[in-house]
Computed example of a mutant assay.
Amino acid sequence: MTLRISLLLFTVFILLSACNNNEEYLADSDFIGEVIKFNNQSIEMEVKQGVFFEKGNTGNIILSYGKSVGKSSLEKGKKFKVWIDGEVLDSSPMQATIGKIEVLD
């Protein structure tokens, strides 16, 4: 009986761990950019500096975002630190999804 309860608790723990949405991001952002266009579910930014920039990814990028990103902070002309979630689409301009974003003061 104790073995069944232990196995059940272990299974529940594993299932709950798999559903965790708290993603960890590196201390350094992928890039720092400035908002140049603001659309319904995306923003266009000019890549200014950072790891992404140093790898030769210059120019503009279109970033889609979900409900986790506060629209009120996304204003044209503001600079942000951006962490990308997933892959960057090699299009013109490039496209990606925001994983995390912070306003620069």
Rank of each mutant, 00 (worst) to 15 (best):
E24L: 06
F80D: 03
F80W: 07
E102H: 05
I62Q: 06
W83T: 00
V82H: 10
S17H: 09
L8T: 10
A18T: 14
K48M: 11
K79R: 13
A96W: 09
L16G: 12
S91L: 10
T58K: 11
W83L: 00
V103M: 04
E24P: 00
S42P: 05
M1K: 09
F53A: 02
F31R: 01
L104D: 04
S91Q: 07
G59E: 15
P93I: 03
V88Y: 08
L104M: 15
S91C: 06
K71V: 11
L74S: 07
Q95K: 07
K71P: 04
D105N: 14
K79C: 00
V51L: 12
D85I: 01
S68N: 10
I5D: 13
V35N: 13
N22D: 10
L9C: 06
G77V: 12
K79M: 01
G99T: 01
G66N: 15
A18S: 09
S64K: 08
S29T: 05
K37V: 02
N40P: 03
T2Y: 09
K67R: 15
G50M: 00
D85S: 14
R4V: 06
L3P: 03
T11C: 09
E54C: 00
E44D: 14
L16N: 12
K81R: 14
I32W: 03
E23A: 07
I43K: 04
N57S: 13
E44R: 12
N21E: 15
A18L: 12
Y65Q: 03
G33R: 05
K76W: 01
I43Q: 06
S6L: 15
L104C: 11
K48F: 04
V51I: 13
A96D: 04
S92T: 13
F38I: 14
L63Q: 06
K79D: 01
K48T: 01
K55R: 09
S64F: 11
N40K: 11
F38G: 07
A27P: 05
K37G: 01
L3S: 05
T97W: 04
K67H: 10
S6E: 13
N57E: 11
F31S: 00
E75K: 14
I5Y: 05
I36T: 03
K37S: 08
F38Y: 12
K71H: 13
V35P: 02
L89V: 13
M94Q: 11
G86R: 04
I32S: 05
D85A: 10
S73W: 12
I101S: 04
M94I: 02
V35W: 13
E87C: 08
L16K: 06
F10H: 04
T11K: 05
F52M: 12
G33Q: 09
V88E: 14
T58I: 13
L7P: 00
K76F: 00
M1P: 09
E75N: 14
V69S: 01
K76D: 09
N60F: 15
G77L: 11
V82D: 08
V69C: 02
T11V: 14
L74E: 10
K100F: 07
E75T: 09
I36N: 03
G33A: 03
S91A: 08
N22H: 12
N20G: 10
E24R: 10
S91W: 03
K79H: 04
L74G: 09
F10N: 07
K55N: 11
L26S: 15
F10K: 07
